[in-house]
Amino acid sequence: MGRRLADLFHGRPRLQAGALLAGPVGWLVVGYLGSLAVLLVTSFWTLGELSGEIEQTFTLDNFRDVVENDVYRSVTGRTVLIAGLVTVTDALLAFPLAFYMAKIAGPRTRGLLLVAVLMPLWSAYLVKIFAWRGILSQEGVLNWALEPLGIEGPGYGLVAVWLVMSYIWLPYMVIPIYAGLERIPNTLLSASEDMGAKPTYTFRRVILPLALPAVIAGSIFTFSLTLGDFIAPTLVGSGEQFIGTVVRDNFTVDLPFAAAFATVPIVIMIVYLLVARRMGAFEHL
């Protein structure tokens, strides 16, 4: 059996590739893309007015609601605003750190810093938000630290959501910027310096343009992940609605509407990804 299979595959690279790909591509195309298609189809269905059961008849009502209802429009606006603020905050925080790692620190420090940034990258997402719930609470760490200065922390609310989201997604911004900066040859910076450019000029005209695609690559994650989150608003918000919370609250009672609202981040991200690709960010993913 094994022998005959081997003969069948030997010298037939296409067949080999096909056999390797069948499982994973099948899973992702049928299972994942298929599910996204189902999501889209579900969003055109409706709830029966009397039964409360899902009726599989085509309607645009859900989308009309999403686009025309002021409440949902402001939810979308608020979510996009926070996602944008988080992205800018993370870029500002990540850049100096990434620059120090890539261009200033020695090999040993660089290795240590890298592991320090990587370790909490994916881990303990929920726990991190939970930690901030403690820090920001009335009797928590922040108010205790600020008390001698006579000021009070932001407490739970929009500011807290912005702060916590920036905190959670920061490593996702550091890593691509670091990798992008590392790719810039040091000789380029020396050349700029030799020709009389001051560091600020070199930064503005050489480093920044070369690092921009990497920043955009990082922003894909900070932006996308903020767009769909509902844990942070629940744990450190003060009842503000976001795309994530609306979808979560509706999916048990009105799945078609939740599905329609979930297409909003998809559309936003498709546009975002198209722009990012034009700016060369995909090579830095």
Partner: peptide
Amino acid sequence: FLVILPIALPGIVTGIALNSTFTQV
């Protein structure tokens, strides 16, 4: 690109898409 997609799209999209497939289809 296909492999990255499930993690690049917001978790809520992945979650509700799979939920509709499991429960509705």
